[in-house]
Design a binder for these strands. Structure first.
Length: 305
RNA sequence: CGAGGGAUUCCCGAGUGGCUAAAGGGGGCGGACUGUAAAUCCGGUAGCUCAGCUUUCGAUGGUUCGAAUCCAUCUCCCUCGA
């Protein structure tokens, strides 16, 4: 319908207020929001993952929120496929896609022309390799990788078992793990990539407040009901921040107080990793939010860039 | 009041005469990252004019060539007994 291929991206660390910005932006530019948060993809995990409210979801179309159950084996490749399809669908209807979320790798899968189809891997083989890693040490596994795929081995730290195993798995499927630097930007879209950051002090204050409100909003009940559904700490999604700590509390291994401080600490760590990740881009349009900024100042910034 | 135990770097916690600015963990700080990514992993972390010097192991004084480690006194904490 239109040859406009503009895709907005609202990125930033957890708790900077991305969802709200995306929501307001969508209303101004007739946009539709596409989730780029690995945990918000899951059903029944609304409070802990701080999903947009039902009210917001009813007002503006939100895509890829609550689309799989907590035990679903999600991967970037799947996410990429789903998200690209949604982007194209939104564009085809003449609306503006607004990607919102803080999962860096998932964001990369849209921003860059990453071809996951060629790097498949093999789950069964992965289990064998994990077994092999248990019987040997990290160094052994790293040597093993170095023998077959020296380039990958050079890029992966000897202690990063998970990545070593993945690289071996991929190599045995006839491919090689690539480095992001080999990947061009996805030429199909015209990205307007905004990242919102904050001073550590301000961000951490917001994180702490948010954790308190998650608890007040019923995080414990949400986690209990997930456990009642049969999910447990081994379920992939329940390893998310807020969930794993609450499970420890519910199982009596820590006090509520401890669980809360653990959630705060882990969220801060996560936010720091996100900030580090964002620094890699260099082509994002960055807005440093201060306590004095209101929604309008953020929106005007986006609309004027 | 009597008998024991303890005070260690931001926190927890090893260390019982030199190899100790002090293990390990946590936190804080920085970083990496193409199929679990809210994951996984890495590096620093007393100060300085930084291969050298200065300050640090409750406080003060002592023994010793040399002390977080031994001795004395003091302060605070814990346990048991009155």
């Amino acid at each position: 319908m239109s040859e406009n291929n503009t895709v907005y991206i609202i990125a930033g660390p957890t708790a900077v207020g991305k969802s709200q910005i995306a929501y307001e932006l969508a209303q101004r530019i007739d946009g539709e929001i596409i989730n780029c948060d690995s945990i918000q993809l899951y059903n029944y995990m609304d409070i802990g993952s701080a999903k947009p409210s039902k009210q917001e979801i009813m007002t503006v179309p939100h895509h890829l929120y609550s689309i799989v159950d907590p035990d679903y084996n999600m991967t970037v490749a799947t996410y990429q496929k789903l998200a690209l399809a949604v982007i194209d669908d939104v564009l085809s209807r003449g609306k503006v896609p607004i990607i919102c979320g803080g999962t860096g790798l998932y964001l990369n899968s849209l921003l860059y022309d990453m071809d996951f189809a060629r790097n498949q891997g093999n789950l069964e083989r992965r289990l064998e390799l994990e077994q092999m890693a248990e019987e040997n040490d990290n160094e052994y596994m790293h040597h093993y990788l170095a023998a077959i795929d020296p380039d990958a081995a050079e890029r992966i730290h000897p202690n990063n078992l998970r990545k070593i195993i993945r690289a071996i798995e991929v190599y045995e499927c006839g491919y090689s793990i690539k480095s992001l630097s080999e990947c061009p930007i996805n030429p199909k879209y015209d990205f307007k990539f905004f990242s919102f950051v904050m001073s550590k002090q301000y961000l951490y204050e917001r994180i702490n407040n948010r954790v308190v409100s998650l608890i007040e909003n019923g995080l414990e009940d949400e986690v209990r009901s997930l456990l009642n559904m049969g999910y447990d700490s081994s379920t992939p999604a329940l390893k998310g921040i807020g969930y794993k700590e609450m499970i420890e509390y519910i199982e009596g291994r820590v006090t509520l107080e401890e669980a809360i401080t653990n959630i705060m600490t882990n969220t801060r760590h996560y936010a720091k990793r996100q900030l580090t990740w964002l620094n890699r881009y260099g082509f994002d349009i960055r807005f440093e939010i201060t306590p004095e900024d209101n929604l309008d100042s953020k929106l005007n910034f986006i609309l004027n860039n």
